[in-house]
Design a protein around this nucleic acid. Structure first.
Lengths: 331, 331
DNA sequence: TTGAAAGCGCTAACAA
DNA sequence: TTGTTAGCGCTTTCAA
C-alpha cells in the first residue's frame, strides 16, 4: 500500500494478486468473474479498508450523480421542505443533492449555479432570483438540464414548476366577497416578486368578477416581515373606516396580521396565502390557500431526472394546484 | 474543440496558442503570467464557453470541498434548519453541502455515510441513528472528520454538538413545581431516543430537588405523533383525578396536548420542550424550553472545518444551552 | 515566465 | 474470463 493515504485499486490488486481491472470488476459487481478471484479481491478490500473513489470513477465514465438545488432563501421553511422532497426523490435513484442558498441575490445565484456546473452536477433545480439566466445557456446546451421552481426563469429553455398563485388568491378573495365583504385589505410583499404579482392579479380577478375593484387605501405593499405586516394592520385597524376583511398574500403577512388582530379581538375576516404550522390551533377561523409543498419538490426532481434520461423536447411549465381550506376556530 | 461535449483546458490551450499549463495558471489565478497571455487565454475561455472541471481538479490535488450532512429525518423542520445553518457556514468557505436523510434507519445511515466518503467529502455531520459507528473508523483514521449532531455517536473519535436536554427539562418542570403543581403529566416519545432519555432524567432531577417523584399514572411514553399525544392528553383529562399541569418532551407532544387542551378550555398549565412556529400567537400562556437551532448547525460546521485544518486532538462535546421562555397568552 | 511530462484513481476499449 | 493499454481533465513536478 502507498506510504500514507487511502488504498487504491492498485493496492487491492497487488494485495489480491490480480489485475487492476479485475478489482474494478469485482468492486462494481460486474458479471463473469471467477468466484475464487472475487473472493480474493473482497478479502483484500476488507483487509485494506478500501473504498472506491467515486470522483475518479465519475471523471472517467462521465457520469453525473448529483443534483444541485439552489434555493432563494434556505432559512425559509418553504424552501427547506422543497429541498427535503428533492432529496427524497434523488435518494431513490442513488443520486445526491447539493444545496445552497442564493439569499435572494442574483449574483450569488449565478456564482452558485456556475460553481455547481463546474462540479459536474447532473442537473440544477433553481428558485430564480436573477432576472436573466442566459448565463446558463451554455450548460443547458451542453446537456445539463435546469428546472425552475416556484418562479419562472428566462433566457434558457428549462422546465418550470409553479404554484397556481393567481387562482389561489382569486378563490380566497372571491370567498370574502361572496360573504359580503367589500372593504377588503390586502397585505403583500413587493410586487417585483413574481408570486406577489401573480397573487395580486388573482385579487383583481376576484374583484372584477364581482364587479368591484380593490380600495387602494386598503392595500399595503413591500411588507417583508411579519412585524411590518403587523404594523400595517395596526394602522388599517386604527383608521376611521377600518377594513372588514383582510387578504394576506403570504404567510409572513398572515402571521403579522394575526399579531395585530388577535390581541385586539378585532372583527376582521382573515384569508391568507400559504399554510403555516399550527394554523389549526388558532383561536379563530381563518381561510388559507393551501397546497402541497413536497409536491413542488417531487415534481421538480422527477422532471429533472426524466430530462436527464431524455433531453430537451420543448420546455414545459407545471402548475401545482391550490385549495382553499378553513383553519383555526379552536377554543 | 473535441467533437462533442464540453471544452477542456486542452481545447482552450489550442485556441489561445499556449500550453495547457498556462491555461491552468490563468484559470486558477496564479501569479507570474504575462498579461498578454492572460488576455489571450481569457478570450479563448469566453469564446469556447469553457468551465473548469472541479472533479478533475480535486482528483489530482486531493482537495475536498464538500461537507456531507446526514439528518435523521429531513421532513423534520428542526433538521432542515440545522442543514440551512450548515450550508451557510460552508458557503463562506466556498464549500458545498450534500445532504441526505437516514429516515431514522441505521442501515440507511451507514450506506449514506460510506457513499459520501466514496465521494470524497471533506467531513461528515451526522445525526446518528445507528448504535455503533465503528464502520466509520477507517475513514476517520484516514482523515475524514466526523461531527455528531443532536445525539452522541459511538465507536469512533468524533466531536459532538448536543443540546442541554437534561437541564432544559429540569428547568421547565422545576418551574411548574415552584408554582405548586404536583400532579404534573409528562408526554414523551420513546425513551430509547437519546434526547427523550435525557429530558426524562431532567424531569426526575426537578422532582428530586423538590422532594417529590413523578406519578407514573400521569406519564405517557412512545408518543410519536401529535395525534397520539392529543389522544393521551384526552385520556388524562377525562380521568377522575386529572393533572393540573403537563410537561411535553418535544414539540409534537406539545402540539398534540394543545389540540386537546385548547378546545376543552381545560385548566392545565403547559410547559414544553422545543419552540414552534406561532407559539407566540397561542391564546394561552405556555412555557417553552427554547434554544437556537441554527447555533447547533453553525457549531457543527465550524467544528468540522476546524478539524479539517488541524486533525484530532481528542474529541469534544459541546452543549448548546437552553432557556425557559414564556409564549402565548394572546387574545 | 513558460512548457513538457507524469500521474491523481478510476473505467473503457481492446487484446489475450 | 482476465489483463493490458489508454486516457478522463486536471495539477504537480521539474526543466527550459
Amino acid at each position: 500500500m502507498r506510504k500514507s493515504g487511502r488504498p487504491t485499486m492498485i493496492d487491492v490488486a497487488a494485495e489480491a494478486g490480480v489485475s487492476l481491472k479485475t478489482v474494478s470488476r469485482v468492486v462494481n459487481g460486474e458479471p463473469h468473474v471467477d468466484p475464487a478471484l472475487t473472493e480474493r479481491v473482497n478479502a483484500a478490500v476488507t483487509r485494506l479498508g478500501y473504498h472506491r473513489n467515486a470522483l475518479a470513477a465519475n471523471l472517467r465514465s462521465g457520469s453525473r450523480d448529483t443534483i444541485g438545488f439552489i434555493a432563494a432563501d434556505l432559512s425559509n421553511t418553504f424552501y427547506m421542505a422543497v429541498a427535503a422532497a428533492v432529496s427524497s426523490i434523488a435518494a431513490r435513484q442513488r443520486m445526491h443533492v447539493v444545496m445552497a442558498s442564493s439569499e435572494e441575490d442574483a449574483d450569488i445565484e449565478r456564482a452558485l449555479a456556475l460553481d455547481m456546473c463546474q462540479r459536474q452536477v447532473g442537473g440544477l433545480i433553481v428558485v430564480p432570483t436573477a432576472a436573466d439566466h442566459s448565463y446558463l445557456a451554455r450548460e443547458v446546451e451542453l446537456g445539463t438540464p435546469v428546472v425552475f421552481l416556484d418562479r419562472p426563469g428566462s433566457g434558457i429553455p428549462a422546465d418550470a414548476i409553479l404554484l397556481d398563485n393567481r387562482g389561489g388568491a382569486r378563490a380566497a378573495v372571491a370567498e370574502l366577497l361572496a360573504e359580503g365583504h367589500r372593504r377588503i385589505a390586502v397585505l403583500q410583499d413587493s410586487l417585483g416578486i413574481y408570486t406577489m404579482a401573480e397573487r395580486w392579479e388573482g385579487v383583481h380577478d376576484a374583484f372584477a368578477a364581482a364587479g368591484h375593484t380593490p380600495d387602494p387605501a386598503l392595500v399595503v405593499e413591500n411588507l417583508h416581515t411579519p412585524t411590518a405586516a403587523r404594523d400595517a394592520m395596526e394602522r388599517l385597524l386604527a383608521a376611521d373606516d377600518p377594513p372588514t376583511a383582510v387578504f394576506c398574500a403570504n404567510n409572513r403577512a398572515t402571521i403579522g396580521a394575526l399579531e395585530s388582530i388577535l390581541p385586539r379581538g378585532a372583527d376582521v375576516a382573515i384569508a391568507g396565502f400559504d399554510d403555516f404550522e399550527l394554523s389549526r390551533l388558532l383561536p379563530r377561523r381563518i381561510r388559507i390557500v393551501d397546497y402541497d409543498i413536497a409536491d413542488l419538490g417531487t415534481r421538480a426532481a422527477q422532471t429533472l431526472l426524466s430530462r436527464g434520461a431524455e433531453p430537451a423536447t420543448g420546455s414545459h411549465t407545471q402548475l401545482v394546484p391550490t385549495r382553499l381550506v378553513d383553519r383555526g376556530g379552536v377554543g
